[in-house]
Write a protein that binds this DNA or RNA. Structure first.
Length: 257
DNA sequence: ATGGTGGCGAGGCCA
């Protein structure tokens, strides 16, 4: 099974790229972030013609996550964990949705950005991650993939210029500790060893052309998921050209158990 | 410290 995650930065504006990406790489399950469309706005005609359906979708004014899967692959859609009240105001922001696809519980995550370390959103980010970790600990015994835009650079190697980011979000010790906490609980990040390099490049200052990016999109697997990973890659080509998202998709291959 | 670009939707807000 081929699983991918992509912060698409508007599904409507990039539907042609999404369809081409699915076909180019023969993707079975695609977790999307920053869909930026209400459910009734999701452009699905072409996707349905290609044999895909929406396994899960949660949207709001600013954001939204979704999971596309091949028709018949998804059998369960899951809402925000621990609802009601989980990760407030996450419920209004559509930051986490899960679906069981081919026996794997896939969670499409858009971790709060945090804005600035002295901003209330930064506290919210850490709190949200702690709640997700608590819930995710309960899923360690099953094949679980926590995929998406984590908005954290776990190491300095994941930042093109660590000095420039010294007082910024994404790199602070508390954020890195929040990410590490998932690993301490037993999750494994399964893409880095196969797919080094950045996954996000800011739109301005020609950051992509100069490869000045961040590595913030990850796939964390429970042990029974991680042992099935045979490879992974970052589709850097998808970040090139006009009309690209500011994130590149990350693709992971799994053996069938 | 600021501004650089892009999406949404029609003025800022968000990243």
């Amino acid at each position: 099974m081929r699983l991918a995650t992509w912060n698409v930065n508007s599904l409507r504006s990039r539907i042609d790229r999404v369809e081409a990406f699915l076909q180019r790489h023969d993707v079975d399950v695609l977790a999307l972030q920053e869909t930026k469309a209400r459910e009734d706005q999701l452009p699905l005609m072409g996707l349905q013609a290609m044999g895909y359906e929406v396994a899960a979708a949660g949207v709001n004014q600013w954001n939204g996550v979704a999971i596309l899967s091949r028709v018949g692959l998804a059998d369960v859609e899951v809402g925000f964990p621990g609802q009601p009240g989980w990760g407030e105001p996450a419920a209004a922001e559509a930051r986490a949705l899960g679906a069981t696809c081919g026996g794997v519980r896939v969670w499409s995550l858009y971790v709060p950005n945090g804005r600035k370390p002295d901003d209330p959103h930064y506290v919210y980010k850490l709190d949200w991650l702690a709640r997700l970790r608590d819930a995710a600990t309960g899923w360690l015994g099953e094949p679980t993939a926590l995929v998406g835009d984590w908005n954290i650079c776990p190491t300095d190697d994941d930042v093109f210029d660590p000095a420039q980011f010294r007082n910024s979000t994404h790199v602070t010790p508390p954020e890195r500790a929040a990410f590490q906490a998932f690993l301490d609980e037993g999750y494994l990040e399964v893409t880095r060893e196969h797919a080094p390099g950045y996954t996000y490049w800011d739109y301005y200052r020609q950051r992509f052309e100069r490869d000045r990016g961040l590595k913030i999109d990850f796939v964390l697997g429970s042990p029974s998921l991680a042992e099935r990973v045979t490879g992974a890659f970052i589709d850097r080509d998808e970040r090139a050209g006009t009309g690209a998202s500011d994130h590149a998709p990350v693709v992971v291959d799994l053996t069938t158990p």
